[in-house]
Amino acid sequence: MKIITNGLFKNNPTFVQVLGMCPTLATTTSAVNGLGMGLATTAVLVMSNMVISVIKKFVPDKIRIPSYIVIIASFVTVIDMIMHGFTYELWKTLGLFIPLIVVNCIILGRAESFASKNNVFKSFLDGIGMGLGFTGALVILGIVREFLGNGSIFGLQITNLKLYAMILPPGAFIALGMLAAFFNYLGTMNLKKKKQQKEEK
C-alpha cells in the first residue's frame, strides 16, 4: 500500500518529481484527453515495470538502457494498436502523443530506479501507484484548463468562461505552476502539522 500511495502523493511524478512534462503540458487541453493519456501511460508503466523486473538478472549492465527502451517501445506500440482498434476517437484525439509515451521519462525513470532493483509484485504496485499519480495529475490539470479555457468539465458546459490562453501552451505552464504551488503548500502544511504533533508528544 505504501508503494502505491508513494506514487500517488508523496512522490507524485508530475507535481513532486516534475517528470513527464511533455505529455503533461501538451495533452491536458481537456479532462478526457488527460485521462486517456494517463491511463495509456499507466498501462505501459505497469507492463514494462513487471517485465523489466523479471529480466533484470539476465540483462548485462551496459545494455540495460537499450533493452529497457526496446521493451517500453514494444508496449507503447501494443497500446497504440489497441487504442487504434478499440477507442478510435480517443486515439485520433491523442494522435502523436501516444507513440511519444516511449520517451516519457517517468517510465524509463521507474525502470531504472525501481523495477531493476525490486521483485515483480512490488514493481507492479509501483507501476500502478506512479501511473495513477500521473493520471490524477493529468486529469486535475485537464479539468482546470478545460474549465478556465472552455467553461466545461469532461465536455459538460458549466459556464461561458472562455480564457483561450488556458488551452494554449502558456496556459499549460500557468496552470501547472499554480497546481504545483498548491500541492507544495499542502505538503509543507502537512510537514508542519506532523512536526507540531511530534513536539506536543
Partner: peptide, 28 residues
Amino acid sequence: VLMIIAIISATLLSIVYMIVKAPIEQSE
C-alpha cells in the same frame, strides 16, 4: 541478450497486430 529481447518484442508485436488488425480496419 539484445537479440533475444528484440525477437521476443517482435513476436509480441506481430501477435498483437494479428489480433487487432481486423478491429483497426473496421474502425477506419
